[in-house]
Nucleic acid binder design. Structure first.
Lengths: 114, 114
DNA sequence: GATTTATATAACTTTGCGGTTATGCTTAAT
DNA sequence: ATTAAGCATAACCGCAAAGTTATATAAATC
């Protein structure tokens, strides 16, 4: 069995998962994100740093704003690991193959348009 | 976007992920699991409690031993949530459909043999 | 150039979590 | 019946993590 992705450590926090759900809709600035939370701006910046170091988000400077963006591949990899674990448990490695094949196919299509 | 599964909180710990990987190979007793770790038996029991309350494992009493088992569906659901998030981010809801369809199909097959 | 806006970092506080030892309960063994 | 084995819980400890306020930097505005 493959090692679990580090990203799962960062995903263990509800606020960070909420951030990722917001970013899945599109890039957002820190102040834009902040409107959706009760805690302070530094607290949000700390979460964003953790997500960055886990490879789950990136940002681009846009004037004085930092536009954060989701790194979907990292999310996908974490999800794939779980599906893989499920498939292994389920004693159906054919499922594993088809699932990962489907993901790889998606990836190829994505790369093509970029 | 759907809420993230609570299970992800429990998955935020490397030791617990290791436990799940061991259990994916088949049910194990606490003492059996303990051989794979450096910490004490109470520490392991606390991890198992958290995994139980997250719905990720169950156990059956077997004499004085407790045989823990993985609840694959919970893992699958957590993985599916991430794949779903990825698909949403990737602006390809057709992918979401096909991925979840594939999982549902797997599930149906599983139910059939049980 | 002074001020305001946007974000990050530093320093600090507090709380939660993962670890420990000690103990209790249940079941098997002798 | 005692003893031992397997596991869970209680009580406690230390530290990391999530929060705070204060401050620094960089860019836009006036």
């Amino acid at each position: 069995m493959l090692d679990a992705p580090l990203a799962l450590d960062a995903l263990g926090d509800p606020s960070r998962r909420q951030i990722l759900m917001l970013l899945a809709r599109g890039g957002m600035s820190v102040s834009g994100l902040l409107e959706h939370f009760d805690f302070s701006q530094p607290a949000l910046s700390k979460h964003l740093r953790i997500l960055r170091e886990a490879g789950l988000v990136t940002f681009v400077k846009d004037g004085r704003a930092h536009r954060y963006e989701l790194r979907g591949e990292a999310i996908r990899d974490a999800g794939a690991w779980m599906i893989e674990l499920y498939a292994f448990w389920n004693d159906r490695l054919d499922t594993l193959g088809s699932t990962l094949d489907a993901l790889a196919e998606e990836d190829a299509r994505e790369d093509a348009v970029q």
